[in-house]
Design a protein around this nucleic acid. Sequence first.
RNA 1: GCCGACCUGGCGCAAUUGGUAGCGCAUCGCACUUGUAAUGCGAGGGUUAGGGGUUCGAGUCCCCUGGUCGGCCCCA
Length: 670
Amino acid sequence: MNSNELISIHVEGKPMQVPADSTGFKLFTEKNIVALRVNGELKDLSYLLADGDSVEGVALESADGLNILRHSAAHVLAQAVQTINHEAKLGIGPPIRDGFYYDFDVDRPFTPEDLKALEKEMERIIRSGQRFIRRVSSEGEAALELAGEPYKLELIGLKSGSSDVGEASVEVGVGELTIYENFDAKEGVVVWKDLCRGPHLPNTRMIGNGFALTRVAAAYWRGNELNKQLQRIYGTAWPTKEELKAHQVQLEEAAKRDHRRLGAELDLFSFPEEIGSGLAVFHPRGGIIRKVMEDYSRKRHEESGYEFVYSPHVTKANLFETSGHLEWYAEGMFPPLKLDEEIDEDGNVKRQAQDYYLKPMNCPFHCLIYKSQARSYRDLPLRMFEFGTVYRYEKSGVLHGITRARGFTQDDAHLYVARESIEVELTNVLNFVLELLRDYGLTDFYLELSTKEEGNPKFVGDNDIWVEATETLERVATNSGLQLVPDPGGAAFYGPKISVQAKDAIGRTWQMSTIQLDFNLPERFDLEYTAPDGTKQRPVMIHRALFGSIERFFGVLTEHYAGHFPPWLAPVQVVGVPVAVEFSPYLHGIATELRASGVRIQIDDSDERMQKKIRNHTMAKVPYMLIAGAEDQSQGAVSFRFRDGTQINGIPREEAVARILRDIAEKVQV
RNA sequence: GCCGACCUGGCGCAAUUGGUAGCGCAUCGCACUUGUAAUGCGAGGGUUAGGGGUUCGAGUCCCCUGGUCGGCCCCA
């Protein structure tokens, strides 16, 4: 090619003429530009520019740049693994949030010591400054080259077919098949290669020292339980060591908020081994928080037109046969209790056993309540609410403190509504849910709309009601003004839903409330009502839970507040600390007054030194301390100490009392 | 459920190559009676998750069961 020839391109939106043999290296000399975006597609810096290209630089610290960094780190990890263990077979190695992983098929799982050795080897590779070189390959050539890599071969095979490659898209994307070679310029040889669509950093040295290997775990090949488990190594990678450190500090902060840890530290709940996995007991302090949460929820439900119902924890099988749960959900249920079987002397069954099941859901019971009498359109909407405790046989590996348990209590409501009033009812429910979540201190939300997958026969109900309901849900969600994220195909087979995602204090997203339409259960239970024109009509059912489960919500709030529950929820709201015993009666006087208004206050009369008392109650995360000595008592005042360590001395006691009562009533955080 | 790691007084941790269980906090008692995050002294508390095995001897090695943690799969 003649290098005197010029081509016309756009760089960062500006037209430019460059020699025809130019690459990204020519255009971007800034050190932090690690790749290109050419006509919308990510490319290596070594990309040879073509006439008409529109080019932008990808900075290392941008989202794309970080992905490239992390993906390149994954390659270096894989090279390190294969350097140490020649037998290791490669799975896939994509970038993920904050880092990357790579899967390997190895005889022996990796140990923490292996990780240390691998980090060392990675450092060596990074320092040796290998270049990542892209090479286009035909399927046949690639298959030959990667003959020793069965998993890569499978991916090449997939690519030629039309099947979904899922996470493996980092290896074999759309377009041509490419192999990335790690070229050691000093030695002048290709030291390693991997099937990969790229792009990569120009050089391993750019990975720098902001990376770390974090953990090993098993993962099913291509995410399928039926496939072999590979050994996955997770790592984290950042542009600088400082950012790595900051990330590690953040993880530590998150760990301090872990509700399992705080649950023990603050004496809120425990999981006694004697009871069984995933089954919690709430201690008095946790019990208070939970009770306050429930009381407030109850009050708000009452005000909003819900009626309270109760249902038993066990039921005969046939209820769940009717509802269909036994058909498609038996795996998730505790096995049945077999009752009342009678066997004669010859061992023949005289009377068949009755199967009783612990309930995994409340809705079938509510349907029976609906059915207990003939319903008229005048009864609708019928809103039934229950704190219903349910039991689900979650797989042992998924249990997680109080947020994923085998027994938990849903704040469950079922609304039976006429088809024409779905919109009004949904609007009310969504507003109610959001308002209540805000009261509990979650304020940052977005909504997810889960809809039917077109053409999938598993979805029940007429298409027109799906269309109508989905449009209604969308309208309601849009009207809320919150961001709406579509989740196509995510609907349950019986109806579409909106779920409320809430962000906590450190930015993590939790799926909280769900509002779900159900066209199936009314059908199965043959629910109907008499319409104004005298015809029998089928109601639509709305399932909705705000907390999802009280336990889970409790856990989320614990982490959100890092155990610093706002005064209205705090197990102990105020502790009085007398400077010396003689001032205790004075504080008890204030306590009596506050107690009369329902405040949970304790006076610390133990014979610890007051400094120790302050430390104790600070660590117990008590919102307020009232400290009183001679000075305060003579002035009818107290010293007001807040959770963050600040204090105001000499506050008149009426003022302190008023402040506490106001904070509690207004549910403020302090 | 799968893979791996782990389980020592209420909690957090120790215990060289297997050699006969310690520390801090908490608890209890005594003294101290204190002005904003740990007063001092003393005492009690563990058949090392449970069971089995190897060994002269097991917290330490092996097996089973239970539980926990990190992932994977799952979450109607």
